[in-house]
Write a protein that binds this DNA or RNA. Structure first.
Lengths: 260, 260
DNA sequence: CCAAAAGTGTTGGAATTACACCCATGG
DNA sequence: CCATGGGTGTAATTCCAACACTTTTGG
């Protein structure tokens, strides 16, 4: 948690450390309990839910900035993290924001000047991340006081243009799933076929034939069957599988190709 | 052409009209003579080739800015124009640039202050456009004095990180061609099968079986055969085809789908 | 009649879909 | 022994890739 003074300093002098006019918004997808969820934060002054975001340091590479922002919120590092769009056209992003409104909301010293960097038009670069839900510890900051993992099929009205951002992230993810392997960061190291099967069904929002599905992943060489099983109560024990890291990484780089 | 005074004003006061720290670089693909080319401009002071680019006006929607920038250079409006990546990590983009070097190069009044907006770190949003080469009239400006249409297989060393930008644009274009219809902006309204066939071969850089190719496009319903032929000299007259606008637009929006 | 380019159909193989029954486990 | 969920194979179909000859045209 940061102090009031630090926030005031951030508002007044943040532009010395961060690039003004550009921010990063991150859609952090987590998978749990057969649901695809995204991390939402409750923004104190605005009294509403929004995405985690942040600014880019003046000398910081972009991807590193996105990684830092996600790390600060989730504690996770070295994720599958992907740029997917720049948002700059919603009414909220086209115009400046009200300084007075802001300082009142956050109970800050009101001597913020006209033209302060935080209140000018700010484009936002959207990144999405795929994380293993259970490994995440969410950290709050001055501007946010609560979080929730929200089912993607049931997103409430979000602040700013964040509903657009989420939607675009989802469509991008669903498109990519056909061309890139997904799952490495969403599943534990060892997983069962039903687990990855449900993951894909959940992401795509439709049913997939279990026989054909496993055939496909095995044919592509993305996963391999282990000699272990997991005990799951009064049912047949499923086998465990693992990603084939080399094939997986190759598919990540090259994509899963189609032809004309 | 703009005057020296206007340029000085742009350097000194441009940040009042444009967003600092962000620019747009555009890769304008043109197709002609069975070659896929991109538009390069010769930058006067730097004495090298680079992409057309520009800044975003403070209240201007992003896509509109990209469109304006392309229009200013090519005279073309209402193009297929697509955002594909944000570049911010090359050494050139991570650090500030030298003011002295710049003012000397352009023979400008040297009283540009430290921290001038043009010399701070600037991210660039990459857009690519597909244009009908023959309709383009290239306009110069103060910073550039020549242009060329350069074959994509033979791109010289470009200024800044523009080689990266071109490469990413090309790979994006080639990926997209499998999932989105291409050609509407590159071909005349009525075209022949061999023409669109060569276009696709050129973009993909490989041969495509003409029989399978036409079958595919017709099956997808993207084009339809007209009852007219074109006379092409001492050879059999090819039939003319037209895009099916509805199917085309639908495919643009939804993508050409594949399944798991 | 000839050179150059356009047009067109078939077939074998691969990939994809659809589909249903048996197995293992713990209670 | 039963309820629950996991595991697996095959046949029909569709899609894709490979392939070569005939037609048209103007000179």
């Amino acid at each position: 948690m940061i102090s009031q003074e630090e926030v005031t300093d951030f508002v007044k002098n943040g532009h010395q450390h961060y690039l003004p006019h550009i921010s990063i918004d991150s859609v952090i997808f987590g998978y749990h309990d057969q649901q695809l969820k995204i991390l939402l934060l409750n923004w104190i002054g605005y009294n509403g839910w929004g995405l985690p975001g942040g600014f880019i340091q003046r000398r910081e590479p972009l991807g590193q900035a996105a990684n830092r922002i996600v790390r600060e919120r989730t504690g996770l590092d070295d994720l599958f993290l992907q740029q997917f769009y720049v948002f700059g056209d919603s009414p909220y992003r086209l115009t400046e924001r009200s300084i007075r409104e802001f300082t009142e909301k956050f109970d800050l010293a009101a001597d913020v000047e006209e033209g302060n960097w935080l209140f000018e038009r700010t484009l936002s670069i959207g990144y999405f991340a795929l994380v293993d839900y259970s490994k995440v510890t969410v950290t709050s900051d001055f501007f946010t006081d609560a979080h929730q993992w929200c089912d993607v099929n049931n997103i409430p009205d979000l602040l700013f243009d964040h509903n657009d951002v989420v939607e675009k992230a989802l469509t991008t993810l669903r498109q990519q799933i056909y061309h890139q392997p997904i799952g490495y960061n969403l599943l534990p190291e060892k997983f069962t076929l039903p687990e990855i099967h449900r993951l894909y069904e959940t992401i795509l929002g439709k049913e997939l034939d279990p026989r054909n599905f496993s055939k496909k992943l095995l044919t592509l060489g993305l996963i391999k069957k282990l000699d272990e099983q997991r005990s799951i109560g009064p049912h047949r024990s499923p086998y465990l599988y693992q990603f084939e890291k080399e094939a997986y990484d190759f598919a990540l780089r090259q994509g899963i190709v189609h032809t004309y």
